[in-house]
Simulated scan of single mutants.
Amino acid sequence: MYSFKNDYSEGAHPRILNALVESNFEQEEGYGEDRYTRKAVELLKERMGRTDVDIHLLSGGTQTNLTALGAFLRPHEAAMAASTGHILGHETGAIEATGHKIISIEAENGKLTPSHLKAVLNGHPDEHMVKPKLVYISNSTEIGSIYQKNELVQLREFCERNNLILFMDGARLGSALCSAENDLQLSDLPALVDAFYIGGTKNGALLGEALVICRDSLKEDFRYHLKQRGALLAKGRLMGIQFLELFRDNLFFDLAMHANKMADMLRFEICEANITFLTKSPSNQIFPILPNGVINELQSKYAFHIWEKVDSDYSAIRLVTSWATKEEEVAAFVEDLKKLL
């Protein structure tokens, strides 16, 4: 059984494991004060060309989202997210558990626009309703689409005019930035969003996300929030070592490019078989629509999510490739699919 369910089924890239082993018996300070974390933070700032951002390393995406949004929002304020957003459907109400409502927005291809946000603000005019304050987006989105630079510029300008916080979930940021259709650089993001994170868990690390806070008003006392949410780890060095290894050369981007290449192979061959897709996705997640009988047969050899029922005969499945996906397994899947069709 080979899995296309997600991009974190495998452990970690060997270089990361080696770095962890080699540093294992060194004594270091705790809670992110170790030299590896300090070096990783300096390196990330250098990569972004910004020394004025704050960077905190957390263990996972849900923890990062709930810690950041819980810290950034006042009790009466709410987040806005596409209806497909990860914080709405896949985090067990973590944001709501912090006391903040998420306003769901139906958005084509999973991406928010200023017109979406304007409609929400118009629908929440006074203190008898929650106050929309934070715009949650992800890149790539939960359905594999990516944001172009001009789209982020438009969101940025709208948020500035309306005093909104623009937050980007970057769990799959590597795949987005390495997509053939992408026109963004990592160094563009601090000027375009108020906070974002760089996902390691889904791009070759054992665990870890690097939260980058760009807006000064969001930085104060953030380590207090980390500690209160259980996110300030005693062995914070474990994340520092991994991000140092990912970014000391091009490894982070090389791994994301491999995941995208494997998805491109799947996408091309599935298109050649005249199969349509649920969404336009240029990243490492694709959503082909297949006959239910074919899906049942494929599940005997491959693991994947059935994403959405299209009609009584067809469903969309999600195939996710990773930094470690094997080309021969992609070829085998395509061959088996074509035989079934």
Rank of each mutant, 00 (worst) to 15 (best):
S145P: 05
E297R: 03
G93R: 03
L251C: 07
S187R: 08
T113W: 03
P190Y: 10
A78W: 00
E46W: 07
G236T: 10
G240P: 01
T84Q: 07
E42V: 11
D194G: 09
F252D: 00
L189N: 02
K131G: 02
V41F: 01
L246G: 06
A12Q: 15
A210R: 01
R50L: 12
I241T: 13
L340E: 15
L244Y: 06
S138K: 11
H124S: 05
L166A: 09
D216G: 06
P14V: 12
H100N: 14
E328P: 04
E10M: 10
D7P: 00
R215E: 09
N162T: 04
A68E: 04
A210I: 05
A195W: 00
E272I: 06
A171R: 07
L134G: 08
K339P: 03
N150H: 15
G174T: 00
N260K: 07
E127M: 10
N6V: 14
Y197M: 12
N109H: 09
L207Q: 12
R47C: 01
E42L: 11
S322F: 06
L43D: 00
N122Y: 06
R50E: 09
E127V: 12
I95D: 02
S59C: 10
H258Q: 11
H258G: 10
A210W: 01
E297W: 00
T321C: 14
L17D: 01
S115T: 13
A210N: 07
D336K: 12
K235A: 09
R223A: 03
G60K: 08
R156N: 14
E46Y: 10
I275C: 14
K227Q: 15
G123A: 13
I87T: 02
A195H: 05
E96M: 06
M257I: 06
D194S: 06
I289P: 02
G110W: 07
Y197C: 05
H76N: 12
L251T: 01
G85R: 09
A176D: 01
H86A: 15
R229E: 07
N24C: 11
D311L: 07
